[in-house]
Design a protein around this nucleic acid. Structure first.
Length: 831
DNA sequence: GAGCACTGC
């Protein structure tokens, strides 16, 4: 049996080590269909006579893009690749694809036109598709459609436009890299520089050499469109002027001038209290002050010379703390706008995160110069329940003077509120970063870039002229970066590397060098190392059978491996829930001012399971058990859960089952069909660092741990080094599912170690037993992964016996049959 | 003792 296995693996590696070029050789050119051409032409003429079409056309004609219609069509027709740039409001996203399609339809060659337009976000893919269908006086599913993960409304195959997320088209290209049948690929919003866009831009460089009849249209904001044109050998570029209303831009100096705000003197509280630390604080302050003046002295001197601001204002700016987030200043500004500014419209305040929103919300609630009843204050954060509410988009109810939205950068691109006329930009945002040298992920607040500031300002000018306050002074501006660091330079690359391998693009490093911005060699090395350690790549960096499965699954590789093991061990249902929750997002919400109640309900739901992972499964199971939508919504309301997140998690589980069935790991797509017992098993990330359990984990309140070990998925440094999700585990699962297994005999004492950092004392007999079982289990798992198929638990074969023995051993650990105790000096990563 | 934002046939 195991000899077959080796042969299989050998054959397998031949399948996946080809080159993408060979696949692309078979790329076919698109053939026309005269019958369809005529039919689509007739239908097009028909829809043009529709009253609604005419009405929509009047609006479309006002868009700047419309005036450049012929230029755009000619540019695309005469070039295989081009860049179209334009600011928000120019209409490029809704019009360019329609120009192309209408041109084909009119020339009676509609059957040869199939446009795919990618969007970075799910919501935009749907809403743009709906808008475009409306403009064409059609329903979705005729000439316009969309596709996002787990949701689609596809248009007719020929003569159509499909709006999809970049991830969807990339996933399709894994099996169809030549984009068979697609005539135009439009990559929209590429200036955002998300990983998917960067990746597809590079991938297309190879594809277009073999698909000469495929047109590639790159669409970006004007600011950095040159970069894309240069990347494609200076391909032609067209700029569409934007259309937004003028937004008056103010800075910190103006905010101080308008409100008369004074910052508290930095050392006051220490002086008052005769604090013994005063001298230390003073030295510290003096140093910061000197540094600040070195940087901004010239600017402040210029201000004095200009006389545009009073000396009082300039003195405020000389305080090195003046650019630090001041809630009092923001409150004063909001009051100033509410009392002094006549123009109706909502106020949008950009803050960095949850606690800032919460604090400002509190201050406004109880401020004596601010009559809360007159205003509608809405916090906006991805984990607050308000994101699912329509209130945010609707005009304030009668009797309410203004809508005031306190938001994170979610309102910068993802959520658009049309009636905003005033923007207050705190000048900072939080950003996730990865440091390969320390293998740390961080989430810290930092200065925004000029591109962010511009985008925030633009949010005030969507319906009429607006006003934007940036809470840093003009002197700061020259020190701000132009653009945010592209996402590909800020993350680990395991999934990107697996994609490179599945697409047969050669050595990972070589391909990554061809990207618009190249990730550091160290990051690539660290990621390849992890994939090798997981046994997803072999020593020559080829996909192993396991790697092949992981590359195809639409989840991060570690979560994919968990899914495969879950199916082999027949405990899929909880594993599917955990995978959906970890890979997508936690469904628990954080309602402002009700966090304690939310925590209590969470604990109640957890029912002492000592696992955030099992808790996510409980939440989803209880949700799935609800019979009616009303029940489901009440359940969510009671436990502060997001209905939409749970629906998506539920659908993800179904999707995972389909994948596992196609890979032959299961035969039935009912997740509970073969679950034998409840036991979970997770990927282990050992580290020698001291870490803290994040407060959102239910284990935080747990006083006594039966076991000193936790497994986790996400570790992120913010105010401290936090583990965000955890499950208490006993030593044996760690030994069986951890890697780098080794045995030791030191001075006659036998022990077992895993992950090079956890060492367990045990008797020699135990060691021999575990070692033999582990060896056999690993063989069997590798075999099952190379030759997927159901494990037949009813048979008596040695393999099944091994699995059953392991499962019994693991689940009965607390019976104390086995002597196993942790070495103290090795348990560094326990919490 | 605490939670930027996205995304996958």
């Amino acid at each position: 049996m195991y000899i077959d296995d080796l042969q299989f693996k050998h054959k397998f590696s031949n399948i996946v080590t080809g080159k993408i070029d060979e696949k692309l050789e078979f790329a076919a050119t698109i053939k026309g269909d005269p019958h369809l051409d005529a039919l689509y032409y007739e239908q097009f003429l028909e829809s043009k006579r529709d009253l609604k079409y005419g009405l929509m056309m009047k609006k479309r004609m006002k868009l700047p893009a419309f005036e450049m219609r012929d230029e755009i069509i000619n540019l695309i027709e005469n070039n295989q690749i081009c860049v179209i740039s334009g600011e928000t409001g120019c209409g490029k996203t809704t019009q360019v694809a329609q120009f192309i399609l209408d041109d084909y339809l009119t020339k009676q060659k509609g059957s040869t036109c199939r446009i795919v337009c990618t969007q970075p976000r799910r919501i935009s893919a749907i809403s743009i598709a709906m808008r475009v269908a409306e403009e064409r006086a059609e329903k979705l599913g005729n000439s316009v459609g969309y596709q996002i993960r787990l949701e689609k409304e596809l248009p007719r195959v020929k003569g159509s436009i499909t709006f999809c997320t970049t991830g969807v088209i990339l996933k399709q290209m894994e099996s169809d890299p030549s984009l068979d049948g697609v005539s135009h690929l439009i990559l929209d919003e590429i200036h955002e520089r998300d990983i998917m866009s960067d990746f597809i831009i590079s991938l297309m460089k190879t594809v277009i050499t073999k698909r000469k009849d495929l047109k590639l249209i790159l669409m970006s904001a004007t600011l950095n469109s040159d970069k894309f044109s240069k990347y494609y050998d200076n391909c032609p570029k067209l700029e569409i002027p934007g259309f937004t209303y003028h937004v008056e831009e103010y800075y910190l100096e103006d905010a101080i001038k308008h409100t008369g705000f004074e910052f508290s003197l930095p050392l006051n509280k220490f002086r008052e209290k005769q604090n013994p630390k005063f001298h230390f604080m003073k030295r510290n302050y003096d140093k910061r002050h000197a540094e600040y003046m070195r940087q901004f002295g010239p600017y402040l001197r210029k201000l004095r010379y200009d006389k545009r601001y009073t000396l009082d204002v300039i003195q405020q700016l000389e305080n090195p703390n003046c650019e630090e987030l001041s809630y009092d200043l923001i409150v004063d500004l909001i009051i100033y706008i509410c009392h002094k500014m006549k123009e109706a419209g909502a106020i949008l305040v950009f803050l960095t995160g949850y606690s800032e929103i919460s604090q400002l919300h509190n201050l406004l609630q109880f401020h004596r110069n601010f009559n809360v009843q007159d205003y509608l204050i809405l916090p906006l954060h991805s984990q607050m329940p308000t994101v699912d509410q329509r209130q945010i988009f609707e005009p304030p109810p009668p009797g309410i003077k203004r809508k005031i939205i306190l938001s994170t950068n979610i309102a910068e691109t993802s959520i658009t509120i049309d009636d905003v006329v005033y923007v207050i930009d705190c000048g900072k945002h939080k950003m996730k970063k990865y440091c390969p040298e320390t293998n740390n992920q961080t989430l810290l607040s930092e200065w925004v870039t000029l591109a962010n500031a511009k985008q925030r300002k633009g949010r005030a000018g969507r319906v009429k002229p607006g006003i934007c306050y940036h809470l840093y002074h003009r002197g700061r501006e020259q020190f701000l970066d132009s653009y945010p660091l592209p996402e590909i330079l800020r993350t680990r690359l395991e999934d990107v590397i697996l994609m490179i391998k599945l697409l047969q693009l050669g050595p990972a490093m070589e391909f990554l060098q061809t990207l618009l911005d190249k990730p550091s060699e160290k990051t690539v090395e660290v990621s390849i190392e992890l994939l090798k350690r997981m046994n997803a790549l072999d020593e020559e960096e080829n996909l192993t059978p396991l790697g092949f499965h992981l590359a195809r699954l639409p989840v991060h590789p570690q979560i994919g491996k968990m899914l495969l093991l879950g199916s082999i061990f027949s405990c899929l249902d909880p594993i599917l829930s955990i995978a959906a929750s970890l890979d997508y997002k936690d469904a628990f919400q954080l309602p402002l001012g009700k966090t304690e109640a939310a925590e209590l309900k969470k604990d109640q739901l957890a029912n002492d399971c000592k696992s955030d992972h099992i808790l996510s499964h409980i939440a989803l199971t209880r949700f799935e058990e609800c019979v009616t939508q009303f029940q489901a919504k009440s359940f969510c309301w009671e436990y502060f859960l997001s209905y939409y997140t749970l629906v998506l998690q539920q659908n993800m589980k179904k999707q995972f089952m389909l994948y596992l069935r196609d890979m032959n790991f299961v035969t039935d797509t009912d997740p509970k069909a073969r679950d034998d017992e409840e036991f979970e098993e997770l990927v282990i990330h050992p580290d020698h660092k001291r870490v803290q359990l994040h407060k959102k984990s239910i284990l935080v309140t747990e006083g006594v741990y039966e076991s000193p070990f936790l497994v986790y998925y996400l570790r992120l440094k913010s105010t401290s080094d936090f583990i965000h999700d955890a499950t208490m585990v006993h030593p044996l699962p760690l030994i069986f599912f951890g890697d780098q297994y080794a045995q030791h005999i030191d001075n006659g004492v036998t022990s077992i170690s895993v992950n090079r950092c956890l060492k367990f004392k045990c008797s020699e007999a135990t060691m021999m037993l575990i070692s033999e079982l582990k060896k056999q289990m690993d063989w069997f798992l590798e075999y099952k992964i190379s030759n997927p198929g159901l494990v037949d638990w009813t048979t008596d074969t040695p393999d099944v016996k091994v699995l059953i023995a392991v499962m019994e051993l693991i689940t009965n650990e607390d019976t104390g049959e086995i002597d196993l105790s942790a070495y103290d000096d090795y348990d560094d990563n326990t919490v």
